[in-house]
């Protein structure tokens, strides 16, 4: 995580350098977009969510007390946005007609079918992503932060406001739940 670069950019942005904000977006947009995508599955929603997260960063940058902790602060913001959006979409029934059994997304990895390698790889990725997205929010968050964002336990602990032991036990339960969801495809 480019902590120093982020801290410098935050400082510059706070002093009115709008380009610094653009560079902050460039620095973190891939991570935040993938985090959002992992949460809500759908690309358009993930894009909109990512934009909203950075809009909030722009608006609330003055609330960040320690510039060196921009990354953790950004992830906290992002997680809050993701939770809110997830709840909103769920209330609208956004996830009710999407499941791992969808013919469009389903792929039997052990079927021995003959799709092209690339097609198979892409579909495997999509399947895993959708399985992650279908987890309960508490399970999904630790998986996203640890296994996809590759953050340390300390960072996750700070972002989620949980003791490190709790983070580890939640992660283990989440991984077992994910394994059970993908059991038929292993």
């Amino acid at each position: 995580m480019p902590y120093q670069e982020a801290a410098q950019l935050v400082r510059a942005f706070r002093h009115g350098d709008q380009q610094a904000f653009n560079r902050l977006v460039a620095l973190y947009q891939r991570k935040i977009y993938n985090l959002a995508l992992g949460y809500v599955k759908q690309e358009d929603e993930a894009k909109d969510l990512t934009q909203d997260i950075f809009v909030t960063v722009f608006r609330q940058i003055d609330k960040l007390k320690d510039e060196s902790k921009f990354g953790a602060w950004l992830y906290q913001l992002a997680m809050n946005h993701c939770r809110n959006r997830y709840q909103k979409l769920r209330r609208r029934g956004f996830f009710s007609n999407q499941s791992l059994d969808d013919t469009e997304t389903g792929l039997n990895l052990s079927s021995g079918a003959t799709p092209e390698k690339e097609y198979e790889r892409q579909n495997t990725s999509r399947l895993v992503r959708e399985a992650i997205a279908s987890l309960a929010p508490a399970e999904k968050e630790v998986i996203l932060l640890r296994d996809l964002q590759e953050l340390s336990y300390e960072e996750i602990s700070e972002i989620l406001g949980l003791p490190m032991g709790t983070v580890k036990s939640k992660l283990n339960r989440a991984r077992l739940a994910l394994k059970n969801r993908l059991k038929h495809f292993l």
Binding site: Y33, S125, D147, R175, L178
Partner: peptide
């Protein structure tokens, strides 16, 4: 272990060009 491997091999997706 297979699940961990699948997750760790996931490629991150490139954000849309019109994000910024």
């Amino acid at each position: 272990q297979q699940i961990l491997s699948l997750m760790h091999n996931l490629e991150t997706q490139t954000p849309p060009a019109d994000l910024l």
